[in-house]
């Protein structure tokens, strides 16, 4: 199985959180693969946001609604609870103020889906703890000095943040490659996918 397949596996898992026919806002939607999947399989009314012009073109080509915007500015023009689901897929770790954005997401969305790489994953721990270098692997493919990822966290870090922000974790899927991890998620899951809502 290649990386592409692992990605589509995690997309299918994310899709399980999303109810059919719902209104979906996908932040950092990239080329729109997830939105396209949700539109086709769940019939959602989807909308993407991305900052890159090339991504906007890719989404428009797929017939998706897409808005060129900067997530760092938050979602101030989006009314409270105006989406059933707000998704942040593989983007959290690139955001300057992740706590601010999370609060904005639970304000705008009735529910929020967040998918992020678990920095506490076993290989990362070994590379840092034993090798003594910042982890570089399939999951985290960048050198520390040249990476878009500026805010890594572990599964446990994220849970603590949610607690302090008054965000409830409704459901969780922990993933490594194309497997769901049931035990020892903190260590054996490289991807954490959470369903969240405001308390």
């Amino acid at each position: 199985m290649n990386e592409q397949n692992f990605q589509s596996f995690s997309y299918e898992e994310i899709a399980k959180f999303v109810e059919p026919k719902s209104r979906v806002l996908d932040l950092g939607c990239g080329e729109g693969e997830l939105l396209e999947l949700l539109t086709k399989t769940k019939g959602v009314n989807g909308r993407g946001v991305d900052i890159e012009e090339t991504m906007i073109v890719a989404c428009i080509s797929k017939g998706l609604s897409v808005f060129q915007g900067n997530l760092e500015e938050g979602l101030k023009d989006y009314p409270d609870k105006s989406y059933d689901f707000v998704i942040l897929n593989q983007t959290l770790q690139m955001i300057h103020k992740p706590a601010f954005l999370l609060k904005e997401m639970v304000r705008v969305g009735k529910r929020v889906v967040v998918n992020f790489p678990n920095f506490g994953y076993l290989i990362n721990r070994i590379q840092l703890g034993i090798g003594g270098t910042m982890p570089v692997n399939k999951n985290i493919p960048y050198q520390w000095f040249d990476t878009p990822n500026i805010h890594f966290c572990t599964r446990r870090d994220f849970f603590q943040l949610c607690k302090s922000l008054g965000i409830r974790i409704v459901d969780e899927i922990a993933i490594h490659k194309n497997r769901k991890i049931k035990l020892g998620k903190d260590i054996f899951a490289s991807q954490i996918c959470l369903l969240l809502e405001e308390i």
């Binding site: 609604s65 808005f67 009314p79 105006s82």
Partner: peptide
């Protein structure tokens, strides 16, 4: 966007 129209913006 609020009223659910198919709109793209750049």
């Amino acid at each position: 966007m609020k009223i659910g129209k198919n709109v793209s913006f750049a």
